[in-house]
Nucleic acid binder design. Structure first.
Lengths: 154, 154
DNA sequence: CTAATACCTGTAGTCACTAGAGGTTCAAGC
DNA sequence: GCTTGAACCTCTAGTGACTACAGGTATTAG
């Protein structure tokens, strides 16, 4: 009669595969405190319960939604306090939505400029290449403000 | 009669301000080889010519277009060989355009899902919060494939 | 001559992981 | 019981494109 915990415990590999991530990522989440330090078996290997599977699914799903790890941390904290009002959750989600929308906007400006530039190149030598020409001289852009592409990609 | 070079040389600060970046960035570009090692004055400070201002403007502009540093390196190399055909430039630009477009697509899927979720929350307690609920259970999403938000943001 | 500013080098931090080295434990087959 | 191979462990370093800081030197204006 070994003392079996009430629910079957799984290893890090199974946890990872069931949540579509890698063992390394699980250990990383533990290290940064998104997941609690897992209990170990006699051989020092992590054992997980169903509750952890659920928590990690929540994390992955929130990340899929594009929330930053810090935002996920807040969301988890909120989810851990179900009796509180959800204004904060709402605000966080709305702020994130606004950021996604602004990113889309900036990317669309960038796309249009890029499209326009590419379309103008008629495939001769680099000396006459419209793309190189536009890159060399910002005045040839339709908008003279920066497109802010590098930041739009973040 | 100090030996003045044919064109006035400027310091790193002025170069930076004229190209809308910071001295740190200029030194970084030199370190990774986008800019050649600058000649120094007697006090070991970098001095730049107009040619470098142009080169750095090209770099910044390409970065604004969202090209990666490695892509910029290739573009610079192509711009340095004006007599060659510009097919490669074209291909690079078209590939980048395609990537920008796919990023926009993925972000739009994400935005719709986020919008839908946020709209469904009627502001009660966390226990009934639709946002938390959706994050807890992927089946509540309209698409059951991952939205791939985190990757879309890269 | 002094004080403020600009510049120098080198290192470490950002974000969210990912990859690898070098070692230990587990599970299955013989 | 023994062996083998997979899975696990810790720790460190790498990614991209900078940014920030510490601790020192050079320049320049007054």
């Amino acid at each position: 009669m070994t003392s079996t915990p009430s629910q079957a415990a799984i290893g890090i590999g199974e946890l990872a595969s069931r949540t579509h991530c890698k063992p390394e990522t699980v250990r990383y989440y533990e290290k940064i405190g998104l997941l609690p330090a897992a209990p170990r078996n006699e051989g020092n290997q992590r054992r997980y319960s169903e509750a952890t599977v659920q928590r990690l699914m929540f994390i992955r799903h929130a990340r899929d939604f594009g929330f930053s790890v810090e935002a996920v941390r807040e969301l988890l904290d909120m989810a851990d306090h179900p009796s509180q009002p959800c204004d904060q959750v709402d605000q966080l989600a709305r702020r994130h939505l606004a950021e996604v929308e602004s990113r889309i906007q900036r990317l669309m400006v960038l796309r249009d400029e890029l499209k326009r530039t590419v379309a103008q190149c008629d495939g001769d030598s680099v000396a006459q290449c419209r793309i190189i020409e536009v890159l060399s001289d910002h005045r040839l852009c339709s908008h003279d403000a920066a497109h802010g592409g590098a930041e739009a990609l973040r």
